[in-house]
Design a protein around this nucleic acid. Structure first.
Length: 806
RNA sequence: GGGCCUGUGGUCUAGUGGCUAUGACACCGCCUCGACACGGCGGAGAUCACCAGUUCGAACCUGGUCAGGCCCACCA
């Protein structure tokens, strides 16, 4: 069979994608006996479009999974979308031009669900299919669907019963813009301009200057602190300071957390300006004064400033201090503050009632859990360890938002006792559904108030192994799928997703959720800078695919190692495209010469053919070892190099004579070449199949499919290495040496490669008989008219020598 | 402030103790040779960031310096 002259990647990729879906090529087989390889695929957040970072990370996962499938494992590779939570809320608000807080919760949730279902998800998932993800897309979950709500709520109930969850009135990190509590992991640093304001407090009517960046918190001031060793301030011990403008007294106390070097060395404590304020409040049992409302305005304690937004209040309070001569100086500073990662708003600490998962007591265990995982690359574990060590808060899991998994909880109207849903009634929405009992077990009251908060989105997405596994109904099979084999993901969410998934799995099952974790890197712009919309250096994968094909994009993605960030260079994708063309053309050549090949094995293989198979065997061995430890970039680089330079440039050139001229070289010599061509090209295609699924499938089907058993190259067996053949390697190397010498000489003379050599004399270490066996191949490949050979003795430094004449 | 990673021809990159340091792109010269000009052949181009050490031998190991990136902490 002959291949068309050109490969139309766009048409072919669409065709194969449809074929894989129709034939269920990647379907998980619940009945198969083979070893299971289960993957905890990252569910991308539905945000409209896949970006290039996704393309890199998901392509890399797919290489690893496709390899495992070809090893013969029963692959469980589900696909989910993470479409619950604030990210989706904000997207819908933008798309539909609405404000969730000014809508009925029910109406807003419906709008989100409808928009996801009809507009976003179908095209979004298509982006993943397009880059060739070999997921079983029938194993699909959406983190907001009933299946996931049920599992998420069940997790809440179980952890509550296990004593791991509590509800408490406490200061929490709060986003005044999104008006919800948030957890440590959702904070980000941001450099902002601010001022150090030196403000006059009065002690016994004398001035005490205190520096602060947050004068608007003066009404919430509860104490003033100095360092116990600070001689300047020791005299104030036991005295009280009068707070300017608001005219009330607070104690002056010593505490080691006060830094003598900072500001004036004496600090005011307001409940709550920052983390230290909270520690002080606790340590010295100070009163709590709330200065801010949930939407970031001043409370009643601010007197005439009540109701003003924080920033405005700050400005006006500074003005009043100035007018009254209570502001000694104002220094501009730059400092980093915590902002909410979703909206960039400065975080406040606000006192409110929230649900937490208790886990600060587990820090030691957390480190052990991390140690038990196989990290690829190893050093990524450090990020996990740091995070665990640096935890300061229990996990705040309640969010005062609309679009999320509801808490399966009601409270007794009289005594506030929480009443949890029955596992059988899940999923529940307390706003619609009734609690499972009629009377409060504690006080006997019969009225209940539904919890209207929703769960943190990570409280659900940290359950992805179960969200995926429970798509399979057979309980025995579920057990076999867990712990999962592999968690692939990018390094930015180690502290979010990876960490929380480990925690949940350990809390529920006392075991890690997976054996291996593979962390991929980030895509940077061509100069190594982060891609961002504001810099205008964003590249869209859809555009790359359109221009160069999905295979070319994957070729690029296979160029970086796990964990390694990679600058995006269009030329690398172009190289991929050229590689695909080369593969096409070489296959076209091979099939032209294999048209009359019936699959028979020659009685004896020519040395050059043995050399080819032996060399390919080495590559197969190396590629297999690399792939097993997820080093697909090595496999790719080695196979690429072998295919292009050894297979195409040398081997194909050398065997042309035998293939084209059987009358001159003999039927057996041709058959030997055909046999070698058939098997080596097939092996090369298989080595490349995980990386370039489309072109390899196209080539496989145009010739091999009818002869080999597999319905797709992607479910065919990974190639077995051919056996090493050192004698053939030595002789083959002589042929390559001769060919290269002839080429160099002709190139230096600026003559065509088909120009004959008048004579060629070779010397090498192999015996004369072996030279005789490759003589015809050398003659044909170099176009030499005369050839001679002499064996070098063992002491000679060079392996080969030559003289030639053109 | 702490930690992790990286630093190889113009650009991107392979290479973790031992031949003249890999490949791609770009560059120069040649070649329409019965798969491929998205090609082939050849060429030029690297004090492997810097300094010191270990070693018979270092791009690779150790220590330090500098530069870049990321993560975390601080954030009165």
């Amino acid at each position: 069979m002959e291949l068309p002259k050109q490969y139309d990647s766009e048409e072919a990729e669409k065709r194969w994608q449809a074929f894989w879906e129709k034939e269920n090529v990647y379907a998980f087989d619940p009945d198969a006996k083979a070893e299971i390889f289960s993957v905890d695929t990252p569910p991308p957040t539905v945000s409209g479009k896949m970006h290039l970072g996704h393309a890199l990370s998901y392509a890399q996962q797919d290489f690893m999974v496709r390899f495992q499938r070809m090893l013969g494992k029963n692959v469980f590779f589900p696909f989910g979308t993470d479409d619950n939570g604030l990210a989706t809320e904000r997207l819908i608000e933008k798309l539909k031009n609405v404000k969730s807080k000014s809508m009925e919760r029910k109406a807003f949730v419906k709008l989100c669900l409808d928009t996801l279902e009809k507009e976003l998800r179908p095209t979004y998932i298509q982006d993943w299919k397009r880059i060739g993800m070999s997921c079983d897309f029938s194993l699909y979950y959406s983190t907001i669907n009933e299946h996931c709500q049920r599992i998420s709520q069940r997790s809440f109930i179980q952890l509550y019963k296990a004593g791991r969850e509590y509800r408490k009135e406490a200061p929490v990190m709060w986003c005044p813009e999104c008006q919800t509590g948030i957890s440590q992991v959702e904070c980000q640093d941001k450099e902002l301009d601010s001022h150090f304001n030196d403000i006059v407090f009065k002690v016994d009517n004398k001035d005490l200057i205190i520096a602060t960046t947050r004068p608007e918190l003066l009404p919430a001031c509860v104490a003033v602190f100095y360092h116990p060793d600070d001689k300047r301030y020791q005299k104030y011990k036991g005295k009280k300071a009068n707070v300017p403008l608001f005219d009330f007294e607070v104690p002056i106390l010593p505490d080691e957390r006060a830094d003598p070097e900072k500001g004036t060395g004496i600090a005011m404590c307001c409940t709550f300006g920052d983390q230290t304020d909270m520690e002080w409040q606790k340590a010295h049992n100070l009163p709590i004064k709330s200065a801010l409302t949930h939407d970031g305005r001043m409370t009643g304690i601010a007197g005439k400033y009540e109701g003003l937004p924080l920033k405005k209040a700050r400005k006006e309070i500074i003005n009043e201090l100035k007018e009254k001569g209570l502001l000694v100086s104002q220094k501009p500073i730059k400092h980093s503050v915590n902002v909410h990662e979703r909206c960039g708003t400065e975080i406040e600490f606000i006192h409110s009632k929230q649900w937490f998962i208790k886990y600060l007591d587990l820090k030691e265990e957390m480190l052990k859990w991390g140690e038990k995982l196989n990290w690829y690359p190893k050093h990524m574990r450090v990020r996990y360890d740091h995070w665990a060590k640096g935890l300061q808060w229990d996990w705040l899991i309640s969010r005062q938002r609309y679009f999320g998994v509801p808490f399966p909880v009601w409270y007794c109207r009289k005594c506030d006792e929480p009443v949890l849903a029955d596992e059988k009634q899940l999923p529940v929405d307390p706003l619609k559904d009734a609690p499972p009992i009629k009377k409060c077990p504690k006080c006997g009251h019969d009225e209940f108030i539904p919890e209207k908060d929703v769960l943190d989105t990570w409280a659900t997405s940290s359950l992805t192994p179960f969200l995926a596994i429970e798509l399979v109904k057979d309980k025995a099979l579920q057990k076999k799928l867990f712990p999962m084999s592999l968690r692939p993901q990018a390094h930015d969410i180690i502290t979010f997703w990876l960490f929380n998934t480990v925690v949940k799995s350990q809390l529920h099952h006392k075991t890690n959720p997976w054996k291996d974790v593979a962390i991929s890197g980030f895509v940077l712009d061509p100069h190594g800078k982060k891609m961002s919309k504001s810099k205008g250096n964003v590249i869209e994968p859809q555009e790359v695919t359109r221009k160069f094909s999905a295979d070319a994009l994957r070729f690029w993605a296979a160029g970086s190692k796990l964990g390694e960030d990679m600058p995006y260079q269009e030329k690398d994708v172009l190289t991929g495209k050229k590689f695909i063309t080369k593969l096409w053309n070489a296959s076209k050549f091979a099939f032209m010469h294999l048209a009359d090949y019936k699959g028979e094995k020659p009685k004896k293989l020519e040395i050059v053919d043995r050399w080819m198979l032996s060399g390919l065997g080495d590559i197969i061995r190396e590629a297999t070892e690399s792939f097993k430890v997820y080093e697909f970039s090595r496999t790719k680089a080695e196979t690429e190099n072998f295919f292009w330079h050894l297979f195409c440039d040398n081997y194909l050139e050398i065997v042309k004579d035998r293939l084209y001229n059987p009358e001159k070289r003999g039927r057996e010599a041709k058959l030997s070449a055909q046999y070698t061509l058939y098997h080596s090209l097939l092996a090369i295609l298989k080595l490349l199949a995980p990386i370039l699924p489309y072109i390899t499938e196209e080539i496989y089907h145009s010739y091999y499919a009818g002869k080999e058993k597999a319905k797709s190259i992607h479910v065919s067996a990974w190639p077995q290495p051919f056996k090493s053949d050192e004698d053939a390697e030595a002789a083959g190397n002589l042929v390559v040496y001769a060919v290269e010498a002839a080429r160099r000489a002709k190139s230096e003379k600026n003559v065509s490669l088909k120009t004959p050599l008048k004579s060629l004399s070779l010397r090498g270490k192999i015996p004369k008989e072996e030279f005789e066996a490759v003589k015809e191949d050398i003659l044909a490949a170099t176009q030499a008219e005369k050839i001679s050979y002499k064996q070098l003795d063992g002491k000679s430094e060079a392996d080969f020598e030559h003289d030639l004449e053109i």
